[in-house]
Each structure stands twice: as structure tokens, then as C-alpha cells.
């Protein structure tokens, strides 16, 4: 005799709400990490698979500062962002600058190589264990929203995501730096002829992208735990999200993060045994329907 399989239960209103809030927070965490990658890929035309590696470096630094040195959370985040950018600047000058105008395959290979090196070296230095980043008391306790309480950390991530999206939009569309950046992307020789120092612009936006990666790595550590193979495990996720959103578009990246984040979280809640099946199914469908991404502005 076989037992009847349990009937599929539609989630209750409460479950649906907590899924939605989790999905929103997860999508925002993805967004903070991925928007930097979207900028490097859409504006600077570099397929930087090492982006996750920089998020991982940020996470390792923050974990070391907050857990082993017992420094404050805000201080640990600042340290992580600055430290990661400091590590990335020489890499940009020595390695990335040489592949800006090379083929996609070269860029993929070199950045995978950098990822492998980062994984090998960080684990040699810090040891191959899971790194936690202890949350301060204000972020660890739940916050009452009136209709529902939400973990303070999730609220922090959602707010940070909104600030990052708004700030970047302002920076790119409304400031002198943004105008120069867009000019350098549209037509680099002409921008140089007009006196824009494109190398400096590229270096600055690269540093910005890396800083955001590090910040996202720390803020999103509750969803994407900092572990030895972080850079490799989520490399595909980040790349997929950016490609689905359309490289270089803030709105596209936000839409892709929220869409794929909610598919991922919902599938995990309701059908955990399928793993990432639905995530990748959605990716294939979106890429086939929108080959340039949801809101692609640049021809990849």
C-alpha cells in the first residue's frame, strides 16, 4: 500500500507576505552586488566574472573586523569597502586595463583566472571555513511595521538597495561625472579630444563598482553566506541577473533582481526539492524572449 501524497497547499496570506518580504530583501541584496557588475559590463564593456570575488573579499574583511577584532558593524562595512577598493586598484591598473578592448573570451578567461586566484589566496590566508558577520543588536531584532514585523536586517538591506539605486541614477544622469562617463562610453576618442580623462573616469567607475560589490557582499551575507567558494558559487547568479536585466541599465538590473529573486525565494519556500530549476528555467525564457535583456541599452 502506498501512502497518498500530501495535497499541494496554497500558502496562507501570512506565508505569502513573509515570502514577499524575503524576496524583496533578497532581490535588493542581489541588486547592490550586481549593479556594479552591470555598470562595468554595460558602460565599460568588460565581462568581469571576478565581481563576486570582490564581494567575497569584502565579506572576509568585514567578518575579520566585526567578529575577530570585535569592531562595530558600520565600521566593519566601511573597512570592507575601502579595503576591497584598495586591493582592486592595482588589479585594475595591471590586469583589467589590458583587456578593456579584447574579445569577450579573453575577458571571461582572465576574470575567471582572477577569481580562482582570489579564492585560493583568501582561503590560504583566512582558512577554509564559513565566515559569519555578527549583526549589531539594532539590526538583529525584528521591527514592527504595523501589519507585520520584519527582521531589522532585512529592512536595512531594502533601504540600502533603494538608496544605491537612487544615488547611482543621480550620479549617472545628473552630475558632471555622469556626463563624462556617458561621453567616454559613447565615443572614447571624441571624449578624449574634448579633454575628458577617460582613463581616470574608467578607474573611478571601476572603483565604484568594486565598492558596491564589497558593500553588497557584506549586507547580503545573510542571504549569500560568505564561504570559501563564494566567488565561484554565485558568479553564475550575478552574471545571469545582469544579463537578464540588460547590462548598463539601473532599472533593468533592479527589475531582474526583483523578478529572479522572487522566483528563487518562492521556489525555495514552496518546492525546495527542485533547487535552482525554476530560476534557470526563467533565465532561459527571459533571455530567449529579450536577447538584449529586459532593458538593455548597450549591445553586449
Amino acid at each position: 500500500m502506498t501512502l497518498p501524497s500530501p495535497p499541494f497547499l496554497w500558502p496562507s496570506m501570512q506565508t505569502a507576505l513573509s515570502i514577499a518580504l524575503d524576496a524583496l530583501a533578497y532581490g535588493m541584496a542581489l541588486f547592490i552586488i550586481c549593479i556594479g557588475l552591470s555598470l562595468t559590463m554595460g558602460l565599460m564593456r568588460v565581462v568581469n566574472l571576478a565581481h563576486g570575488a570582490f564581494a567575497m573579499i569584502g565579506g572576509y574583511i568585514a567578518s575579520y573586523a566585526a567578529r575577530d577584532l570585535a569592531l562595530g558593524y558600520a565600521f566593519a562595512i566601511t573597512l570592507a569597502v575601502l579595503g576591497t577598493v584598495l586591493i582592486a586598484i592595482p588589479l585594475e591598473r595591471l590586469l583589467f586595463r589590458r583587456i578593456y578592448d579584447r574579445s569577450e573570451l579573453s575577458q571571461v578567461l582572465m576574470t575567471i583566472g582572477i577569481t580562482f586566484c582570489v579564492i585560493g589566496i583568501t582561503n590560504y590566508v583566512f582558512g577554509p571555513t564559513l565566515k559569519t558577520i555578527p549583526l549589531p543588536a539594532e539590526l538583529a531584532r525584528p521591527v514592527d511595521l504595523g501589519f507585520r514585523s520584519i527582521a531589522g536586517h532585512r529592512l536595512f538591506v531594502i533601504a540600502s538597495g533603494l538608496v544605491v539605486a537612487g544615488g547611482l541614477w543621480f550620479l549617472i544622469e545628473r552630475t558632471g561625472f555622469g556626463i563624462r562617463l556617458r561621453a567616454a562610453v559613447e565615443n572614447a576618442p571624441m571624449a578624449r579630444a574634448l579633454g575628458v580623462r577617460t582613463e581616470l573616469i574608467y578607474a573611478a567607475s571601476f572603483a565604484l563598482a568594486i565598492g558596491l560589490a564589497a558593500f553588497g557582499g557584506v549586507a547580503g551575507a545573510e542571504f549569500l553566506p560568505i564561504e570559501p567558494y563564494y566567488a565561484l558559487r554565485y558568479m553564475v547568479t550575478f552574471l545571469v541577473v545582469v544579463s537578464v536585466g540588460g547590462a548598463g541599465s539601473i532599472g533593468g538590473a533592479l527589475a531582474a533582481c526583483l523578478l529572479l529573486g522572487s522566483i528563487d525565494i518562492t521556489a525555495r519556500y514552496l518546492m525546495p526539492e527542485f533547487g535552482n530549476f525554476f530560476f534557470y528555467l526563467a533565465v532561459i525564457l527571459v533571455v530567449c524572449l529579450f536577447p538584449r535583456g529586459l532593458m538593455g541599452r548597450a549591445k553586449a
Binding site: 569577450e104 552574471l239 544579463s243 537578464v244 530549476f277 534557470y280 532561459i284 530567449c288 536577447p291 553586449a300
Partner: peptide, 27 residues
């Protein structure tokens, strides 16, 4: 599937296909 796209989306499609089959084989 892959020949529908070019460049980076094509690369992403190849990754998505192998991951999809991986999950299917697991399931």
C-alpha cells in the same frame, strides 16, 4: 536555444542550460 542570442546572453544561456540539466538530473 543558444543560437537565438549572441555574445554575453549566449554565454549565459549555455550556463543556464547546464545548470538546468544539473537540477533535472538531481530531481
Amino acid at each position: 536555444v543558444m543560437l537565438r542570442a549572441h555574445g554575453l546572453p549566449q554565454l549565459v544561456l549555455s550556463i543556464a542550460i547546464v545548470q538546468l540539466l544539473h537540477e533535472a538530473a538531481n530531481k
